[in-house]
Amino acid sequence: MKPFEYVRADDATQAVAMVAERPNARFLGGGTNLVDHMKLGLVEPELLVDVTALPFNRVEPLPDGGVRIGAAVRNSDLAANPLVRQNYPVLAAALLSGASGQLRNLATTGGNLVQRTRCPYFQTLYTPCNKREPGSGCSAITGHNREHAILGASQACVATHPSDMAVALTALGATVRVLGPAGERVVPIGELNRLPGDEPHQDTTLNHGELITAVDLPALPLAKRSAYYKVRDRASYAFAQVSAAIAVDIHSGVVRDVRVALGGVAHKPWRAHRAEALLRGAPATEDVFRAAADAELAEAKPLSDNGFKVPMVRNTLVSVLRRLAREH
């Protein structure tokens, strides 16, 4: 790790200006991903601007019935928040399935969204990786790729997004509020993270110096019936092989509305639009659930080690939908 300057920001506009004007400056939130990466030598910032003291640490109801989550809200506080537990159980469940109690007490909402892939080749300086070093190649395609993407990957990168929280936010259709040197803008969650394409080094659509200040959850009554299921190699404290965030409204045996997002399968949290389209208006039956899963997986392209993710996603989707249908 190279020496760096540290500043604790007490004003968001100044924080943004400080980072924006120096290409090698970074915002510091909970540090659980950034400090990790600095130790690994993946990033070598000259300046850290600590944004945890900015007034973005509240969870508050919005006039339209939604909820605003400050970017500095810790993962544990968000998961324990009564509004979230009551109205968006999928989000609380996703948060609680991630990391450990000690990490959730540090990690922030904003930081969780911009955490980077756990691909071992990305995290190792001596192996080629287009995400870490554009143009150097992808080691995972011909190497160990059991944890990697089956949807939306490219020849340049097959990494997955590691967040659980973001999968739930994607299902909920959250919007992300961003402060940049030019002012505020709002980014739909589905447009925050990117698919890798030819530029896998760009995880997100954020520009340098842009700071996430809040995440807004829309008023979404069906989210009260929502669930997150995560399949992983051990019972706790592990990243997802596959996960699903689902909210569904079933009336008289028919799916009135549904939101589905998948984790562990792509470079970004994967909104399952095809599955949703097939489910919406269809009878809530096992056959329909299976057809919806198959539709979403039609273009899955497994790698040498991760063909299992196709049946694992299918079965996970079907089993969570079945459970939610039963609870109606």
């Binding site: 540290y6 604790r8 909970g30 540090g31 659980t32 400090v35 000690q102 990490l103 007490n105 540090l106």
Partner: peptide, 19 residues
């Protein structure tokens, strides 16, 4: 490395002292 930081359990290996 778990300690109680302002009453909460955290991993002290990922918390910068200066912060």
């Amino acid at each position: 490395c778990t300690v109680l930081l302002d009453g909460r359990r955290v991993v002290s290996c990922l918390a910068l002292a200066v912060a």
